[in-house]
Amino acid sequence: MKKKRPIKIAIVGVGKIACDQHLPAIWASDEFELVASASLGDTVAGWPGFRSIDDMLAAVPKIEAVALCVPPQYRYMAARAALLAGKHVLMEKPPGATLSEVEDLQALAARQGCTLFASWHSRHAPAVQPAKAFLAEWPPLGVQIIWREDVRVWHPGQEWIWQAGGLGVFDPGINALSILTEILPSRVFLQRATLGFPANRAAPIMAELFFQDADGMQVHADFDWRETTQQRWDIVVQTAAGELRLGDGGASLWRQGVAQVLGEDKEYPSLYRHFAALIRDGRSDVDLSPLRHVADAFMLGLHTQLGLFDH
């Protein structure tokens, strides 16, 4: 069989997530070839680097796809520029700062005949699909989400997450919501929420959310960035067949306290395989349900002011 030609891809936003996850996944893939980057900060050594996506697209016309790793507040204009240039676009989570702008990009991608991929990397964790299959057979009776971490450890010096549109604690919390919306057999709706904002920050540092589906099944989510001892990224589901627990952000799975054997944890390589398949099939994948839950929380939730917070 003739080997497929790799898709020429560029990275926009050479920050922590690009260096930790996207670049290693691209370099390890035989479906993509890195050809350039654009960033106000660092560049990728050995590849052409530019200060803006417009300069990059003008200078490197062979680019076929773009992975956007810039903060969500700046993603719309970058995605729009790439789509108007006829490039396929992968957007790191969350796909944008608002639902409206992502929906506009979705329509633009369709008009341009380009692939738009709103990526939710946590859905590619090894426990997610086994959990989804189990819950299709044994519907959930109740769900508890515990997503508690130390922001100083996981987001050192990242000021954009504290700005309006940066999402604050929902930046990691939306990973839990992306898993939840993937594994549940029915839709849930936010009933009430409390969001805690530091007095000197524009984004929340904690959030407590209460959801319910049409049949009354309840989901409680606890997101907190102030945890300095037992950091957890767990989703615990009660079913008639016992407890199902996804741990470590979906990297591990327990059924009735018994650890399940899972495949290797390769979220981003899986994400890029899916992106390549979308491009080759001429399809897009833009699921906004996790971002919609966050938007509902900001709209419906009680906003409370907490003490000052500094890194």
Rank of each mutant, 00 (worst) to 15 (best):
M56P: 08
A79Q: 04
L105Y: 00
F211D: 03
D215Q: 14
S284M: 05
V219I: 08
E64C: 08
H121Q: 10
L246G: 07
K266V: 15
V151W: 13
T229P: 01
A131I: 00
G282L: 03
L308V: 15
D310W: 15
P185D: 06
P156V: 11
G173W: 01
M217S: 02
V151D: 07
E182Y: 11
D55W: 00
N200A: 00
Q212Y: 01
T181P: 06
G257K: 10
V60S: 02
Q191N: 10
R152K: 12
A221T: 02
R123W: 04
G49I: 04
I161H: 11
S270W: 07
G46W: 11
R232T: 10
V219W: 02
P48R: 02
P140H: 05
P139F: 06
Q73M: 15
R123G: 01
S37R: 03
M217C: 05
D234R: 05
V60I: 14
L83N: 04
G173I: 08
E137K: 12
R232C: 04
K8C: 07
R51A: 13
R51P: 12
L180S: 07
P48H: 08
R255D: 00
D310R: 12
L34D: 00
S270M: 13
V236E: 09
M1W: 01
S52E: 03
P126G: 11
I11M: 08
F298A: 02
L190E: 01
Q230V: 15
F298C: 01
T304F: 04
G250I: 00
V258E: 14
I146C: 09
L90S: 08
G263H: 05
E159L: 12
L209I: 04
A176S: 13
G263I: 10
Q230G: 14
H274P: 02
G157L: 05
V151T: 11
F117P: 00
E31T: 15
W147A: 03
R273H: 15
V294A: 00
N200R: 05
I179P: 02
A38G: 14
A202F: 06
A133V: 04
L308N: 13
S186W: 08
L262I: 06
Q191H: 04
F309V: 01
I161V: 14
A110Q: 10
P198A: 01
G168K: 09
N200I: 03
V153G: 09
A107K: 13
L23V: 13
E64Y: 06
S119V: 04
F189S: 11
E92T: 03
E101Q: 11
A79Y: 10
C19I: 14
V12N: 07
P198C: 02
T115G: 01
A107P: 03
P95Y: 01
A127M: 05
F309I: 01
G166Q: 03
A133E: 13
